[in-house]
């Protein structure tokens, strides 16, 4: 009993490597038809921030797919041209109904990112 306790104590105190679950994600960024990249001065920052945000979203993290590949379209908001709109869909159309496979996001002038998964409840 004591031996078992000691083993348990030692094993709990031992330095352990963090266990990590990972998923390969591809994001292909495409400008919407008629859009001009030079009119989007904050595009790169928005892309970086959105990438980070997307990777941390629960639907992506808990995706059942072995890997994810998104085709993302970038356009300027019709209401406010300074705000960029992103629409992402999975490249694998067989997964089109999965919650993580259809999303839209905005990135405003203050680089505030809002992501919405369209297949969600």
């Amino acid at each position: 009993m004591l031996l078992a306790f000691l083993i348990l104590l030692l094993s709990s105190c031992a330095k352990k490597e963090p266990e990590v679950d990972f998923k390969p994600v591809q994001i292909h960024w495409n400008l919407a038809e008629g859009e001009d990249e030079s009119q989007m001065p904050r595009k790169d920052n928005c892309v970086i921030l959105l990438t980070g945000r997307l990777m941390g979203e629960a639907p992506v993290q808990s995706s059942q797919a072995g890997e994810l590949s998104y085709e993302v379209t970038i356009s300027r908001s019709t209401n406010n041209p300074e705000t960029l709109e992103f629409r992402g869909i999975c490249a694998d159309l067989s997964m089109a109904d999965a919650p993580e496979c259809r999303w839209s996001a905005t990135c405003d002038a203050d680089l505030k990112i809002v992501v919405k998964f369209d297949n969600g409840d």
């Binding site: 266990e19 679950d21 994600v25 490249a91």
Partner: peptide
């Protein structure tokens, strides 16, 4: 390496990130 493999598998000339989350 797995992310690179995914890039190769999906047609090459692409970028794949290995997103991660702590399971514990």
């Amino acid at each position: 390496d797995k992310a690179l493999y995914a890039s190769k598998e999906n047609g090459r000339n692409r970028v794949t990130s290995a997103t991660f989350r702590h399971t514990r």
